[in-house]
Design a protein around this nucleic acid. Sequence first.
DNA 1: GCCTGAGCTTGACACTTGTCAAGAGATGTT
DNA 2: AACATCTCTTGACAAGTGTCAAGCTCAGGC
Lengths: 210, 210
Amino acid sequence: MVAVTPTNTSRRAAPRPVDKFDRRRDELAESALTTLGELGYARASLREIAGNSPFSHGVVHYYFDDKLELVIYSIRYYKARCVTRYDAVVRDSTSPAELVEAFAAKLAQTIRDEAPMHRLWYDLRIQSMFEEPLREAITEIDGTLQAMIWRVVDRYATLSGRPPSVNASAAYGMLDGLFQQALLAYATLGDEVLDGLATQVRAVLPLLVR
Amino acid sequence: MVAVTPTNTSRRAAPRPVDKFDRRRDELAESALTTLGELGYARASLREIAGNSPFSHGVVHYYFDDKLELVIYSIRYYKARCVTRYDAVVRDSTSPAELVEAFAAKLAQTIRDEAPMHRLWYDLRIQSMFEEPLREAITEIDGTLQAMIWRVVDRYATLSGRPPSVNASAAYGMLDGLFQQALLAYATLGDEVLDGLATQVRAVLPLLVR
DNA sequence: GCCTGAGCTTGACACTTGTCAAGAGATGTT
DNA sequence: AACATCTCTTGACAAGTGTCAAGCTCAGGC
């Protein structure tokens, strides 16, 4: 044993299917995301995660060193897909008003479609304040999210012909605050909060340019 | 047994010291807050909490039905004290600029002095999305925090002689977002982020009035 | 046909958790 | 002094945790 099993992080020394190993990791990540999104970081056990996958609980340690590596891999896997969410909005809008509408609608749709993923994200971000090993990955992802939001605000400024009134960090902090507030209310009140979010965004975006 | 121990929530049927029971609850809440602030909701066990108190782990169930009641009681106990934090700022400021400075300074000081309490608050608020029993208390406290922030913004508007440009919910969402962002960065970078927070607040408050 | 090793399952381990019952001390009333 | 009740400690329980070792299954190379 010991050296036979593929030591996970350093990959297998394996043959042909160059990334069959990676594909399984992605598959496990997908299952993990489902469970984590439902139960949160603390309450999602590896057995539960494996239970929502085609595999048994032991397999997790075949592909990941420990729970933390699985969780970090999973959230990275998810966020890699989702940081481009607003790029179409930025690309296709031709007027400030159009961009505001498209952005507001996309934010609301994000909550409607992927609330569990986002409460997981906020859960992990908070946990990173308690658990140092999470911090690096979280910080990095948070940076890409800030850049994503800034592309929207910057484009809005350009279309308006006015300069931004706050920097990227402040813009992200404020809009993320609004989004999180809406997500929180969504847990209790459901769909009815989404219009409110759109209204707030319509009111706030104009404040972010001079 | 069964009916002898004071059934906790319904109180003891006890004698004179009308609130000795309540004082112990407060004492336990204080210890619980220390531990919860250090470890977070998920990792703070009742044994650890009791370990940071003058009592043994069994005593918790003498004063509280279960862990959840202790946690909710504790966070309420804390927030009851802290929702008045900015009242002096509101009361004593006589110009918009003065209020902005006092508010910004107080926000930064809050992070410096009570970071663990606030990351606990955010932790619990997020957990309330996964654990329904937490929701009611969290929602209520969040409302009082929003009112607290609104008193500041409203006062700022009055002093400026201009009406607010957003409603209470949006103002709270945005400022809370900035605060949380600073708290998060504070965990990694320490004191140096606090000036940044003050700068952001100076830039943002003026945007909240017309 | 046998062997090897990757992929996966099973079952166990050491440990922690919330909870609670039994009972010891303390306190104060009668 | 005796009693009852409050207060608190101790020790146990069952359930659940992450982890990991042993071994099963099966495809591919000799």
